[in-house]
Amino acid sequence: MSPLSTNDLNRIFESLDRKREGLVSIYELQQLLGRVGNYTTLEELEKLVGKTNLDFFDFFFFYEAIINPKINEDIAGNDFLESDLLKAFKVFDLNGDGFISCEELQSVLSRLGLWEKSNGDCKNMIKVYDTNSDGVLDFEEFKNMMSLSDSSKV
């Protein structure tokens, strides 16, 4: 299987998301996998995925786990978290320059149907975590943002 770009994955995700809810069910995922020759039961797929619906990030990470099985070996430690965060960062860093700009943040959130729900100004969203005040998020600032948002869920 050759690697797909984030744009390719987004188009696939959107075509599977027929209800336009920003979610793909494991049934829809099972149908896609069957079309490419990977047959599995819904029960097996649910155990593998851990949920019945996937948002774009879940879908992206599922694809990455399939295309790069080494990820499954890294789950035991921070290497997995770091790898996971780097992949998420790359989803937002649309031009690949190593930074997430306001425009990139708004573009990705819009594609995922989350921009309308955020009720926010992307400059202010970035400003909260932009420790060096350069107007963009680098990977370390992104990691800090993600770790702070994870701890608020506890």
Score class of each variant (00 low, 15 high):
1 M>V: 13
3 P>K: 12
5 S>W: 13
5 S>M: 12
6 T>D: 11
7 N>F: 01
9 L>P: 08
10 N>D: 11
11 R>P: 06
11 R>G: 11
12 I>D: 11
12 I>K: 13
12 I>L: 15
18 R>D: 07
20 R>T: 13
21 E>R: 02
24 V>F: 10
24 V>E: 12
24 V>R: 08
25 S>K: 01
27 Y>M: 05
32 L>Y: 09
32 L>P: 08
32 L>F: 14
32 L>N: 00
36 V>L: 03
36 V>Y: 08
40 T>Q: 10
42 L>R: 03
45 L>G: 04
47 K>P: 01
51 K>G: 06
51 K>C: 00
55 D>F: 05
55 D>V: 14
56 F>A: 09
59 F>Q: 06
63 Y>N: 01
65 A>L: 15
68 N>T: 13
71 I>G: 03
72 N>I: 12
73 E>Y: 09
74 D>S: 11
77 G>N: 07
77 G>M: 09
79 D>N: 01
87 K>N: 09
91 V>Y: 10
92 F>C: 06
93 D>L: 07
96 G>Q: 01
96 G>D: 02
97 D>H: 04
97 D>R: 11
97 D>N: 15
98 G>F: 01
98 G>M: 04
99 F>N: 09
101 S>T: 15
102 C>I: 00
102 C>A: 07
103 E>A: 10
103 E>W: 01
105 L>I: 00
107 S>N: 05
108 V>T: 00
111 R>T: 02
112 L>G: 12
113 G>W: 02
114 L>Q: 15
115 W>Q: 11
116 E>P: 03
117 K>T: 07
118 S>Q: 13
119 N>L: 10
120 G>T: 01
122 C>T: 02
123 K>W: 04
125 M>K: 06
125 M>A: 04
130 D>Q: 10
130 D>K: 11
130 D>C: 04
131 T>Y: 09
132 N>Y: 14
133 S>L: 13
135 G>T: 15
135 G>L: 06
137 L>S: 03
137 L>K: 02
141 E>G: 00
143 K>T: 03
147 S>R: 04
154 V>S: 15
